[in-house]
Design a protein around this nucleic acid. Structure first.
Lengths: 195, 195
DNA sequence: AACGTTCTTGACCGAATGGTCAAGTCACCG
DNA sequence: CGGTGACTTGACCATTCGGTCAAGAACGTT
């Protein structure tokens, strides 16, 4: 539903998205009904369909905007850092930090990746993120800082390792972010054999 | 439903599980109804509820049995290999191979991890797998083959990196398993900096 | 105050959905 | 053959779901 929104409208929209995201992450997308969302917000059902044309569109928007936010944070963290390897490290730390502040999106992204209707929304952003990381890696290879391997593959592996570590240590076990980030960076740079 | 099953019964049960797993992976767990499952198998609905007490139990069983199968494959691949680093490498390759033959479980595991009702089923097996890998890593550390770092953390990172590479290259892009496995092993052993 | 637009209400609807069950079929054993 | 327990049928049910809509409230502008 593309409509003109007043400030009041924009606030409602945000409120709906934030709240729905929390419910989706907690109980799951399908088990959370539109009625659940509006009832816990104490508004009528019509409010929902004024801002979103369907439940599906709602989740797509949530995914789009949150991924945008994560990307913004990553780029902000990297800043003007000249060393590409350090840029990668900064990106990893920023990502873990962001997920710590936005736990709910972790579960949400995971669900979305398993659903063929939402996976494409994720894919596009994922590809951009990988391309970004791959650029830094390529630079590092050119500068002779790291070995010459497929940059995209390395980027994917880094993302995978960091996500897994974040889930297990930061979310499941409430370990401090710093130590996890340290381990993630160390693993991504030197693997298990080590320096 | 714990009941005595004849051979005929066991076959039906298998058939239901295999078929349901395929449908779940394709269209998603919630969007696939019990009616969908039994109709495409051209049997009555009662058949389903003879073998499973609920749709939820069905997925739990699918997860349990498939994870068991994966684990069996990993242990078989490792065999009696004396070198712990090589054991890890063999385990990685076996895992990628298994997922290649059982694509559908990849999506299924991913969904299950995002649902609080199924995540525990996954967790238990995941923890066992991590403990296994950590044992090999610890041995490698003792033998001085790799640097002294938290073995469990390394194990988690390895799993994360391999899963991500498998999804992107083997599933999404149909790249040959060998090259992916090669990259996964290389990354896990030496990271991006390289040897 | 009056008017158009944005926003809100909540009863309502058709279409599923997960699950039940009384009745019947099949395979095997004595 | 007759009987027993393993299996199968499919109509049926209560409930819930995503989504609609006619009616009205709130707001901004003039």
């Amino acid at each position: 539903m593309r409509r003109k929104l007043t400030q009041r409208g924009k606030d409602r929209r945000r409120q709906l998205m934030e709240h729905a995201a929390a419910l989706f992450a907690e109980r799951g997308y399908h088990p959370t009904s539109v009625a659940d969302i509006v009832e816990s917000l104490r508004v009528g059902k019509g409010v929902f369909y004024w801002y979103f044309s369907s439940k599906e569109e709602l989740l797509s928007e949530i995914l789009r905007e949150s991924q945008q936010d994560l990307r913004r944070r990553q780029q902000q963290a990297i800043g003007e850092e000249p060393n590409p390897v350090v840029r990668i490290e900064l990106g990893i730390r920023a990502t873990i930090d962001w997920f710590l502040e936005h736990r709910k999106y972790f579960t949400l992204f995971q669900f979305a990746a398993s659903d063929e209707r939402f996976a494409p929304v994720l894919r596009r952003n994922h590809d951009v993120a990988i391309a970004d990381a791959a650029r830094h890696i390529k630079e590092a290879i050119v500068e002779g800082l790291i070995a010459d391997q497929n940059p995209e593959m390395l980027a994917e592996a880094i993302v995978g390792a960091c996500n897994q570590l974040t889930r297990t240590y930061v979310f499941d076990r409430n370990e401090p972010v710093d130590r996890t980030a340290e381990a993630a960076v160390s693993f991504c740079l030197h693997g298990i054999v080590g320096t």
